[in-house]
Design a protein around this nucleic acid. Structure first.
Length: 572
DNA sequence: GCCGTTTTCGGCCCGACTGTTTTCAGTCG
C-alpha cells in the first residue's frame, strides 16, 4: 500500500511538535509545519509523483532535505529522524501541546522537572498539586490543565460549514444590536468556506463606547467566557463551538478582515512580502514607519504588496500568491454562472417532492434545465426504478415539458454501478435518456485496484455521462473508498465523461484539491445538488463554494453551459 | 529547514490576553 500524503504530513507535524518541545530553532519547526501543509493539501500523491520521476523540490516549502525525507518515507514507510527524536522525547508529550495553556516551553518544564511522559502522569501530578510549584506555573494553570484533561480537550469537534452558518447567523443578529456597532462579519475558515469549521472568528467594527463584548457575553447560548479584554474575547457556546470576537476601528476594517480571514500561512506570506517592501502589516493596517498607508479595504492591503485582490476561498497558501504575482489567478465560478442542476430525486424514488414541484422550484431559481435522476432498481431502500417505471416517468416528463416555459426537464437516472462495473439498467433503456449519472452505493470495501477498474468499466458504457459523488465520503462520518482518482479523471477526460461535485453539505464530494486536479486534467465538473426536496436545490451554493476553493472557473463547470452545448456533451 | 526585486547567508509576521510576575514570558490566533 502506497504511503498517502496525509501520512507524510502527520510525520512532519509530529517532528515539528517534538522539535518544539526540544527547544529547537522555531523557524525550522515552522519549515516542517509548512511542508506538512503543502503535502497534505496537494492534489497529487507524493508517492506517485516520485514514481513518475518528478522533482519534489519544485513544490513550495519543499527543499533538498525535505524532498529526501519524503522519499525516505515513501520508500521505507518510516523516517529515521522521527525515530531518533522519539527516543529523546516521548511522543505522548507532543499530544500535550493540544491542551489549552500548554505550549512547548511548559511541556518541556513538566517533562524535565517532574519526569512527566504521559497524560496520566500529568493528571496525577495536577491532582497532587505538584504543578503549581513549578516556575512559570501557578494554581490557575494547574486547575486549567486538570479541567482540560477531564473534559477530554484536544478532541475538539469540528462543525460542518452549514451548521456553523446557522449558529453564526443567529449570533451576528444578536451582536448587531450592541451599541455603536457598524460592521459584523464572520471571517476565518468560515469565510474561506472550508468544509468544516473549528471555531467562528467574528470581526466587528465599532466606534467608542461600544458594548459589543459585553453583548457577546450576554448571549444566551454562551456557556463560558475563556478570555476577555478591551478589543477581543473568546467564548465557548453550549454547542461546543468556540467564538473569537475582535473589535477594531472602521478605518482598519480591511486589514483586520484580511488578518482574521487567514489562513495563517497566507497571512505570513503576505506580511513577508510587506517586510521586503519596508512595510509592516498588522490587523490595524499597512504601515510605512508610523504612517498608515492602507487598510480600509482588503484590496488596499493586497495593492500595497503589488498584488490583485485574492478571493477568500483561495487563501490557503497553496500557490495563490504566486498566481497573483503572475496574473494567472482563476476567474472563479459564481452561482450566477449556474444554468441548471443535473442530479435530483422526486417522490418516484426517495425524494420528498413531486416532479412538477421540483420543476417549478427550478424555474423560480431561473434555471434553464434540470435533470431528474431517480435511483435504479438495485437500490431497494430508495425505491429505485425498474426499467418499466423509468419508461413511464420519461413519458410524464415529455408531457411536463410540453407545458413548461423556459425550463427543460431532462430525462435521467442515477444508475447504480454494480460490483463488476456494469450498469443497473439495460442499454436500450439508457439510450432514451438525456443524462446518465452513474453512482456507487454498495461495495465500498473493494481494493483500490478493483474499485478503480469497476468505475473505469462503467465509464466505458457509451451512455454513461457523469460520475456522481465520486469518492463516496461523508465528512466526519465515512472515509472515501479506496480509489485511484487521478486514473478515473484521466479516463473521464479521454472518454468524454464528466465528474460530479456533489453539493450535499455532508458530502462536498469532490474536495478542493481533487477539484484542482480535475481542472488541471481538463475534465468538466458538474456541480449537482442531489436534491431530495425543493428546498435542497439551494445546496447549489455549497457546491459552488467548494468549486471556488478548487479554483474552478465557469468554463470548468458543465452545468454552466447552455442547453444545446450540454446536450451535445451528453452525446459523447 | 527554506529561500532570494537587500540572493547562497542571514534572515524568517505580529499583536492581545493571561497568569505569573513586579516588567514579562508563554500561549494563542
Amino acid at each position: 500500500m502506497a504511503v498517502s500524503n496525509s501520512e507524510i504530513a502527520a510525520i512532519f507535524n509530529e517532528i515539528a511538535d517534538l522539535l518544539e518541545i526540544a527547544g529547537e530553532n522555531p523557524f525550522r519547526v515552522r519549515a516542517y509545519r509548512n511542508a506538512a501543509r503543502t503535502v497534505e493539501g496537494y492534489s497529487r500523491s507524493m508517492a506517485e509523483m516520485l514514481a513518475a520521476g518528478e522533482d519534489l523540490e519544485e513544490l513550495p516549502t519543499i527543499g533538498e532535505d525535505l524532498a529526501g525525507k519524503i522519499r525516505e518515507i515513501v520508500d521505507t514507510g518510516r523516517l529515521r529522524k522521527l525515530q531518533r527524536l522519539e527516543r529523546g522525547v516521548s511522543p505522548a508529550l507532543a499530544g500535550m501541546l493540544r491542551l489549552p495553556g500548554l505550549g512547548p516551553k511548559r511541556v518541556k518544564v513538566l517533562h524535565e522537572r517532574l519526569g512527566i511522559n504521559t497524560q496520566e502522569e500529568l493528571e496525577h501530578a495536577a491532582e497532587q498539586g505538584k504543578i503549581r510549584e513549578l516556575p512559570g506555573f501557578g494554581a490557575k494553570t494547574e486547575a486549567k490543565i486538570l479541567e482540560a484533561i477531564r473534559r477530554h480537550a484536544g478532541q475538539e469537534r469540528r462543525f460542518l460549514w452549514h451548521e456553523a452558518e446557522s449558529l453564526g447567523k443567529e449570533l451576528l443578529h444578536h451582536l448587531e444590536q450592541a451599541r455603536a456597532v457598524r460592521d459584523v462579519v464572520i471571517a476565518g475558515s468560515f469565510r474561506r468556506r472550508q468544509e468544516t469549521v473549528g471555531d467562528l472568528d467574528i470581526l466587528v467594527t465599532a466606534g467608542k463606547g461600544t458594548d459589543v463584548i459585553q453583548c457577546l457575553h450576554d448571549y444566551d447560548r454562551v456557556e463560558r467566557v475563556v478570555s476577555s479584554g478591551e478589543t477581543r474575547s473568546t467564548v465557548i457556546l453550549r454547542m461546543g463551538l468556540q467564538v473569537d470576537l475582535r473589535v477594531v476601528p472602521a478605518v482598519s476594517f480591511g486589514a483586520a478582515l484580511h488578518y482574521f480571514t487567514g489562513c495563517k500561512a497566507h497571512n505570513i506570506a503576505i506580511r513577508t512580502l510587506g517586510v521586503r517592501k519596508g512595510l509592516k502589516i498588522n490587523e490595524y493596517g499597512v504601515f510605512r514607519g508610523e504612517r498608515r498607508v492602507a487598510g480600509k479595504s482588503e484590496a488596499s492591503v493586497y495593492a500595497q504588496v503589488g498584488l490583485p485582490y485574492i478571493e477568500p476561498e483561495l487563501r490557503e497558501n497553496q500557490g495563490e500568491i504566486e498566481a497573483a504575482q503572475k496574473k494567472t489567478l482563476p476567474d472563479l465560478v459564481t452561482e450566477a454562472d449556474i444554468l441548471g442542476d443535473l442530479h435530483m430525486h422526486t417522490t418516484a424514488s426517495d425524494g420528498h417532492d413531486s416532479l412538477e414541484a421540483m420543476a417549478r422550484a427550478a424555474q423560480r431559481r431561473g434555471y434553464a434545465y434540470i435533470a431528474i435522476t431517480e435511483h435504479s432498481q438495485r437500490l431497494k431502500v430508495a425505491r429505485g426504478l425498474t426499467a418499466e417505471r423509468l419508461r413511464k416517468q420519461c413519458d410524464v416528463i415529455d408531457r411536463l415539458n410540453d407545458k413548461l416555459r423556459g425550463l427543460r426537464v431532462l430525462k435521467g437516472m442515477e444508475v447504480d454501478i454494480l460490483d463488476d462495473g456494469s450498469l443497473d439498467m439495460p442499454d436500450d433503456v439508457l439510450e432514451r435518456l438525456d443524462v446518465c449519472v452513474g453512482a456507487i452505493h454498495a461495495g465500498f470495501n473493494l481494493s483500490r485496484k478493483k474499485q478503480t477498474e469497476r468505475i473505469l468499466r462503467a465509464m466505458d458504457n457509451p451512455h454513461f455521462n457523469i460520475l456522481a459523488h465520486p469518492t463516496g465520503r461523508l465528512i466526519g462520518r465515512r472515509d472515501a473508498y479506496e480509489l485511484d482518482l487521478e486514473r478515473v479523471l484521466r479516463a473521464a477526460k479521454s472518454s468524454g465523461c464528466a465528474i460530479e461535485l456533489n453539493a450535499q453539505p455532508e458530502r462536498l464530494d469532490l474536495d478542493d484539491s481533487a477539484c484542482r486536479l480535475a481542472r488541471s486534467i481538463g475534465v468538466p465538473l458538474a456541480i449537482s445538488t442531489d436534491a431530495h426536496s425543493t428546498a435542497q436545490l439551494d445546496y447549489m451554493r455549497f457546491g459552488v463554494a467548494q468549486a471556488r476553493r478548487g479554483w474552478l472557473e465557469k468554463a470548468d463547470v458543465l452545468n454552466s453551459r447552455k442547453l444545446h452545448s450540454l446536450l451535445k456533451f451528453m452525446q459523447r
